[in-house]
Amino acid sequence: MSEREALEPETDDRLAEPAWQGLVERVQSGEASGLEDLYRIFSSGIRFHLYRRFGSQDLDDKVHDIFLIVAQAIRGGELREPERLMGYVRTVVRRQVAGYIETAVQLRRKETDLDPGMPLSDSRSDPERSAIERQNVELALRVLNGVSKRDREVLIRFYLKEQTPLEICRDMGLTETQFRLIKSRAKARFGELGKSRLRLPAFLRRKASS
């Protein structure tokens, strides 16, 4: 098995042990295939984490920044344990997220002609996402209006008030099984109603088309 083949999963059940050592060595030696594989393996995951925090604003730039940091760190010999590559990438992502937040806050402090309370991301740049989210809310309203009063109360307590399952079961005299059924039925109904209307988020559409 070649090293690049070793980076592919064997089956869904048997998860292959990634050949991180070889990948790190190829990146360190400057091989183009090393950087290509590094980007291919991690770019979607990095994009996923950033999208959940910041939406689609400047997403490509942020992903590129993080990839550069990781690649330069590997080439500079900063990754002493190649088998910890995933943990290192995760750490870089978390530090960058904290940095982006801090930068946004400080930028507002310095630009006196702007309202310091401006949001971190401009949702006006992603109207499609806003429209999809509104459609999903309509679906959720149909789900909530279509269940019994008791089930609706359970779902409101869980999703809006963020009570724990234990608290909800105790307050409403439910068993854990009853609670799980109510939740899973609502989720299944949401999925049924949205099958033809739910769309992939922007970052997944990009992945699907690449």
């Binding site: 989210e133 999903n136 679906l139 959720a140 809006l160 609502a186 949401f190 739910l198």
Partner: peptide
Amino acid sequence: AHVTAMRSAAAELR
């Protein structure tokens, strides 16, 4: 998507 939608819908219903 499901959690965000349910949370918003629950807030509106509430």
